[in-house]
């Protein structure tokens, strides 16, 4: 990695962490339903354990839960996220794990499938997040060796309990370009105390996506450029007789750093498909999937200008994506820095 990329990453997260969090009142916030997930790729994780290099994976289940690069990935069209063997769940167990979050959310699906969502609709639809029973109620505990090891060796980086408050006193006037923050908080609430995330890397920047929000991993083959689209819209890739909209993740996430030199240095390999949408985030490297605790994430109390960013994973110092908010923005054709209002 070049020095400039390091600096880019450092600067980026310095900005993220520097954003002030307002004082908010703590109330019992409802847990929203989430959209139906595509779990087929995750299922592949269980059925194709051989694609994960065992040596690298074995290291990944240690208490440090640091992302490790994957040495090799299957060349098939749909490749499994690099889950460590110990952390690998069998298909049934994983389906049970996801069962609590795959409840129908017709409203959200409609919004996701409608390409003509307007910015105002985004704000409104997110505000209508429907509360459901707590996730933990329907979610069985799955104890794996990885989970046991993680539980036995908690990371030293755990500092405090996650900030999971519903923002009820923040004046709308200060939300100049934001989705209502209640939506962001629901991401933390809809997850179990322990949840799995997939780490992937783009231009030296590591990002995390909760596995429950992962629609699949698709290898990049041929991307058709569509004229007249924003710079961050890389094009479309045909996948299973439909088109995946490919997001140039670096251009979307850090447009201020994205120049011709950076663009040429990026070698996109995979698409991280968001939930059941046709949006795929282009990434260079899949790192690993690990189970982390909520307390290991510095949750953002306020959506701010980045509703797509749910928080920062402390250990890896990487952003964790709020996939639903991100999808809403993409459907509305909004870039990272575009105001929603």
């Amino acid at each position: 990695m070049s020095k400039s990329v390091d600096e880019t990453v450092f600067d980026y997260f310095s900005v993220l962490l520097a954003e002030p969090s307002p004082q908010v009142e703590e109330v019992a916030a409802p847990v929203p339903e989430t959209a139906t997930r595509r779990v087929e790729v995750v299922a592949d994780v269980a059925t194709k354990p051989k694609v994960t290099p065992p040596v690298v994976a074995a290291k990944a289940v240690t208490a440090t839960v640091a992302p490790k690069p994957i040495a090799a990935v299957s060349q098939s069209k749909t490749v499994a996220p690099a889950v460590t063997p110990a952390a690998t769940l069998d298909k049934q167990a994983l389906e049970r794990l996801l069962s609590s979050v795959v409840a129908d959310n017709k409203e959200h699906r409609d919004a996701a499938s409608n390409p003509q969502v307007k910015a105002a609709d985004v704000k409104e639809s997110i505000a209508k997040a429907t509360p459901v029973a707590p996730v933990s109620q329907a979610q069985p505990k799955i104890v794996t060796k990885a989970a046991e090891k993680i539980a036995e060796k908690p990371t030293a980086a755990i500092i405090k309990e996650p900030t999971i408050e519903a923002v009820t006193t923040v004046a709308p006037a200060t939300q100049t370009a934001a989705v209502p923050p209640a939506n962001i908080l629901t991401l933390a609430e809809q997850l179990d105390e322990e949840f799995q995330v997939l780490f992937f890397k783009v231009a030296g920047l590591t990002l995390a996506v909760p596995l429950v929000s992962l629609g699949g991993i698709v290898q990049i083959e041929h991307i058709n450029h569509i004229i007249g689209r924003p710079k961050w819209f890389k094009g479309v890739q045909t996948y299973r007789e439909s088109q995946l909209n490919v997001v140039d993740t670096a251009a979307w996430v850090m447009p201020e750093k994205y120049d011709e030199k950076l663009a040429q240095s990026i070698n996109y390999q995979y698409l991280v498909v968001l939930e059941n949408s046709n949006w795929g985030l282009a990434c260079e490297t899949l790192l690993n999937a690990v189970k982390i605790n909520k307390s290991q994430v510095n949750w953002r109390a306020k959506a701010g200008k980045r509703p797509w960013l749910a928080g920062v994973v402390k250990e890896q110092m990487c952003g964790i994506l709020h996939v639903q908010a991100l999808m809403e923005m993409l459907n509305a054709g909004l870039g990272c820095q575009d105001p929603i209002n």
Partner: peptide, 24 residues
């Protein structure tokens, strides 16, 4: 994909898959 903001976005009236190729 209806995410275009530029003027040239309106030129495209649709896309069609033809095998491995996308026809714009």
């Amino acid at each position: 994909p209806n995410v275009g903001t530029e003027e040239s976005a309106k030129f495209i009236q649709g896309v069609s898959n033809r095998g491995e190729e996308l026809l714009i």
